[in-house]
């Protein structure tokens, strides 16, 4: 019989094996959530144990890519938490205008909804042309979908509502073309976007930035890994640059709490002090 302790040992071994073989580092993710996701995958792949899954993942890279879809939670929305984007527009954009050119890093961009939201906001505020956006993630499937910018038409109704609540004043359908049940995003929105594979767990800073948006990624990290990521953002951000987080994420419990001040605390908008 497999006890709970056995399962915990197997999970540690699987994560270690993934790191050694594929260099994806999940060792410092929040334990409870990753355990659930691995056990879910064990069921979906019809493996008897986590060890059985490990054997398949170790010997078959395509199996690892499938498992990665479970490990990364690729869910997103356009203008997710509209009040956050409204605060970006009202409180942050006026300050962004003071820089002649902008570099913006969207870390953990998943399938790209956040990137297009940001690009739309910047375009409406006249800032997109002088901006470079770096959109990074560890999941190559998600990055590919982000680059394509094709989403289910069904979701557009809700996104349009989010957009409106986020202070959007145009008709949201101007930003996409509908075809075969899909919404194809206006490709000029990504003219200034560079999509790249980058891990907050293993990679280093690649550019100076004025704004970093890392939303709904840090909750999956433990404190040590959060601190690593905050360290990267701190290093990347220029003097008085902005860091924006997901609505349940905070810098307060981190080692970097004193290096940032809250600009709009309820919307998780911080500024390098």
């Amino acid at each position: 019989m497999t006890t709970n302790r056995d399962t915990d040992i197997e999970i540690r071994l699987l994560i270690e094996a993934i790191y050694l073989k594929y260099s994806y580092d999940f060792r410092d993710y929040s334990g409870a959530s990753i355990k659930r996701r691995i056990l879910h995958a064990v069921g979906q792949f019809e493996c008897r144990t986590v060890s059985a899954l490990q054997e398949r993942v170790l010997h078959d890279p395509s199996m690892f890519m499938e498992l990665l879809q479970y490990l990364t939670i690729p869910v997103s929305e356009m203008f997710r938490d509209p009040s956050h984007f409204l605060a970006l527009r009202n409180e942050v954009v006026p300050l962004l205008r003071t820089w002649p050119s902008l570099k913006i890093w969207i870390a953990g961009c998943s399938t790209g909804e956040e990137v297009y939201s940001m690009a739309i906001l910047l375009r409406e505020e006249g800032l997109l042309e002088r901006s470079i956006l770096y959109a990074t993630d560890i999941n190559p499937y998600s990055l590919e979908r982000a680059k394509q910018g094709i989403y289910s038409l069904q979701n557009m109704h809700q996104y349009a509502e989010n957009y409106r609540l986020a202070g959007g004043r145009r008709d949201f359908s101007e930003y996409y073309t509908a075809a075969y049940g899909n919404a194809i995003m206006d490709s000029s929105l990504r003219d200034n976007v560079t999509f790249a594979d980058h891990s907050l767990a293993t990679d280093s800073v690649f550019s100076e930035t004025q704004l970093v948006s890392c939303r709904n990624v840090m909750i999956y990290f433990n404190k040590d890994l959060q601190d690593r990521a905050f360290g990267l953002f701190h290093e990347s951000l220029c003097h008085r640059g902005f860091l924006v987080l997901g609505s349940k994420e905070s810098i307060d419990f981190s080692a970097y709490a004193n290096q940032f001040e809250a600009l709009v605390r309820p919307e998780r908008i911080f500024r390098k002090s």
Binding site: A32, S33, I73, I219
Partner: peptide, 15 residues
């Protein structure tokens, strides 16, 4: 979702 971690801290997730 709300979880308890082994170090007896709380964590949130959106599975």
């Amino acid at each position: 979702h709300l979880s308890v971690e082994h170090d007896l801290s709380l964590s949130l997730s959106q599975e």
